[in-house]
Design a protein around this nucleic acid. Structure first.
Lengths: 117, 117
DNA sequence: TTCAATGGTCTACGATCGTCGAACTTGGGA
DNA sequence: TCCCAAGTTCGACGATCGTAGACCATTGAA
């Protein structure tokens, strides 16, 4: 893929966001991204599923406007479009963040460490 | 159907809410319910689709925890579970409400009037 | 220039979804 | 009682979704 499609801020539609976030695997990815706070490499997430499945989920998240993917060499870096989403749909990311387990940050970090090992 | 299933407040899960609200028809129903503010009879909504389709959508909304359906004789009355949702997922209904067309209340009322005529 | 690594594309599969018609159930009159 | 009106359930259909294996494209390093 030469160009990664991202909707413009004013093209982001709530139905699409809801659909993207209605899958447990994708919701978990977004929660993890929020919890970790910074840009993440694709291969540091989604260790639990096949590459193609994870790639598909990232595509859904990207094309719905939840995430932005930056290409750098052979790596892709994923971020949540927090500023734009908070501007256009204030409160949505807070919902996602607060819907997770109480100690999400630690849990996510532990899961990541385990996945990397 | 003898008993209508409603999840308890603490059984409402965000994924299910997102899934329920990811369909344009259901989102529109919820928006209309919010805009009109009060309990609505089933047959005053969903005039645009088949009875069975509308019944299905109401079931999804009900079983995900978005709405509550009260039975009175041959009629069903639908409400949005605003208090519970605002307590458990604060901001979610605001998102839905604000994502609609600017003059939603008037538009919904006009649509209802037209549908009733 | 070859090679390994990263990650996307293609294809296929079963599962779920949205839609609707038809038949059914329930309750309230005439 | 008989009948209609309001909704639900059932069965079917095509469309979309989530999943994964196999293959491909690009990059950076040896």
């Amino acid at each position: 893929m030469r160009v990664l499609l991202h909707p413009a801020e004013d093209e982001i539609r709530l139905e699409n966001l809801f659909h993207a976030l209605s899958d447990p695997a994708r919701l978990e990815v977004v929660r993890t991204l929020i919890a970790l706070g910074s840009e993440q490499s694709c291969n540091s997430l989604g260790e639990a599923m096949a590459k193609s499945t994870f790639s598909h989920h990232l595509k859904v998240l990207r094309e719905s406007g939840v995430t932005r993917t930056r290409v750098s060499g052979t790596h892709r870096y994923v971020t949540v479009r927090s500023d734009e989403l908070n501007r256009r749909f204030p409160g949505l990311l807070d919902l996602v963040e607060r819907s997770g387990p109480p100690t999400l940050t630690e849990a996510a970090a532990a899961a990541l460490s385990a996945a990397r090992a």
